[in-house]
Nucleic acid binder design. Structure first.
Lengths: 352, 352
DNA sequence: TTCTAGCACTCTTCCATTGAGAGTGCCAAG
DNA sequence: CTTGGCACTCTCAATGGAAGAGTGCTAGAA
């Protein structure tokens, strides 16, 4: 009879797994390397420290833990955390009250930006880490209406109302002044054509119509289409995210190094890299976790990122999550991120 | 014959002033306490270190410098810096090329937010400190036009165009659904009444009209006024500022302490205190400098803030500046802040 | 086999000590 | 008023135990 469980972890006995789990739990709480004596006490296995040491030796061999130096305890490696979150960890169930409270602060009537701010703050507040939320993509949101107002000289203000929730303004530069009447006509024409349609569809139609019928259009239509082209160009230029609670990261020891911290904060304001990382999570269904180097970005080496996509009408439109030190309470953070994504999705549900 | 100049600094000889100046210049460059030997070399006065020491002793007595400990050199106190910036400092003249370059990146066609971002980044980029710009107040900006669009159910979108440059949206919650026609009429009425007028005047008229003529108004007018009230209420709720280059503050030694840094960054995201400080500078004309504790906010104890107001049409509408360690190159920073304020004012000049 | 106890060994951390270096304060003389 | 000299003070970095924690290994017990 063999108690080696080959499904999870290569040749890792159940006892070894349990010890790894306890080690990680203790390490995430205390932050110090965990020694054999402490582990023996915690593990409730009635084993002597010496035995634990043997097991630790195996775990180290397999790359799940390591010693910072000869005579410190062990700390988990990225691989160790990975095994932990994949098959060892038992996520905490959330307090229903807490969920209730969270859900209340997500008023569906709020405009997009405020909503995202709130969520981001919520995440950072509850987890004591940095919270992050990407602004929702509009590809599959319905264009409610479009309007044009004349500004000074050769500038026209375009107003798009999307999904009844969000308003976007864009200033167009034109080659000649336009009067209010002209603009209204153009808007009417476009609304007639596009109102209620997906942004992505609008864009599709725009390209097709323009190509095919440019010759046969009257002046009004041509102008309208031209405006629309400007408005709907550069769709994801505004791709962005909202961050909150960065300062929480300032007092985790693993980032005590000011260099590291500065790198991280610079990455936050550059946005580029973080955005790329978050974009990768738009595909997957549920919670997604990058541990340490797994993210592929140097500055995030000592960090883990836990994300979950949120959606409108079953369509994934954005990602939210938290960024914190690799040593974080995954069992608490994961369900929180998961629940928050659901709550945000609910808050974004189109009205009636 | 006495060479004591009683105008600047109590009983401070010219030589002492000169030495203080040289000391501060050297200290801002090197960051180490300045000893008598080094000062003797720098000061070009052909004095021995011993003499310098006597002068330093006087300066210390008067509170302009202090020793971190018995056998270090001297560092300036807040009072020392104050004397320095008030009467000793000779501001550097700016490179015309630099100004040219700055002015080019401030395209007057940019919308307000982008413009503020650019300025803030410019400030932090040139000074290597944190740049800050308050969003302009609209009190005396002309309301160009106002429009209403129906959203779902009992929600109406209000659109204000201010000064041809900025667009503000606000969602109003109404007690019943409104049709497009009704809204258009209301907008027409309000535009007729208010277009071209100052926001502050609009608000004034609004209060007066409502009080005086509520009884006699027809339904349309009442609705319009009610909407307008909602739109123009809470004027400075959106008071805000834009910050850039915070990370520059991470590697100045005086903030090496993570605690301090964290406090500072939290103050940045709270915004409250910083906003108060900046608001205070709306009154004064030119460059305003808070050194260390002078700001009155604990978190800024080790920092100096250099600000200058910017204006549109001669009316001060906002403040910009930099935040950095007390030990900063005032002679460089001051003219930069000053020039930037002028450039921004120029970029905001209303179009013909 | 598997576990355990014991023991030598290693490595960090926390002092206390020390010497060099920098700079001061004061005094007496120019 | 200025200067050189000199004793003094304080920081900083390096050094060297001593204590504490934890390991690895080995031999014996279950």
């Amino acid at each position: 009879m063999s108690d080696v469980d080959t499904r999870s972890g290569p040749q890792l006995g159940e006892r070894a797994q349990h010890l790894l789990k306890v080690l990680i739990e203790r390490y995430t709480q205390e932050g110090h390397p965990v020694g054999s004596r402490a582990l023996a006490r915690d593990a409730q296995l009635d084993l002597s420290p010496a035995t634990i040491r043997n097991v630790m030796s195996d775990l180290e061999e397999l790359g799940f833990v390591r010693s910072p130096h000869t005579s410190a305890g062990r700390v988990p490696t990225v691989q160790g955390y990975r095994l932990f979150v994949d098959s060892l960890l038992k996520v905490q169930t959330l307090d229903l009250n807490e969920i209730e409270q969270m859900s209340e602060s997500l008023d569906p009537d709020l405009d997009t930006k405020t909503l995202m701010d709130t969520v981001s703050n919520m995440l950072s507040g509850i987890t004591k880490l940095a919270g992050v939320v990407t602004l929702p993509r509009h590809e599959h949101a319905a264009l409610r209406q479009i309007d044009f107002l004349p500004l000074s000289q050769n500038r026209v203000l375009a107003i798009m109302v999307i999904d009844d929730r969000e308003v976007q303004n864009r200033i167009l530069h034109t080659d000649r002044p336009f009067g209010r009447g002209e603009l209204e006509q153009a808007a009417n024409y476009l609304n007639h054509l596009f109102a209620g349609k997906d942004i992505s569809e609008v864009r599709r139609v725009l390209i097709r119509d323009l190509r095919e019928t440019k010759e046969t259009m009257n002046r009004l239509m041509a102008t309208a289409i031209e405006f629309a082209e400007q408005v709907f160009s550069d769709p994801d230029g505004g791709e962005d995210f909202v961050l909150a609670g960065q300062t929480n990261l300032m007092d985790c020891q693993e980032l005590g190094n000011v260099e590291k911290l500065r790198g991280l904060f610079e990455a936050f304001s550059e946005k580029q890299d973080i955005l790329h990382l978050l974009d990768r999570c738009l595909q997957a269904e549920g919670v997604h976790i990058f541990i340490g180097e797994e993210s592929g970005f140097q500055v995030l080496d000592e960090c883990s990122v836990v994300t979950a996509p949120y959606s409108v009408d079953g369509e994934v439109v954005g990602v939210l999550g938290v960024i914190g030190p690799t040593r974080m309470a995954y069992n608490r953070v994961i369900p929180i991120v998961d629940a928050t994504a659901r709550l945000l999705s609910a808050a974004l549900k189109p009205r009636d």
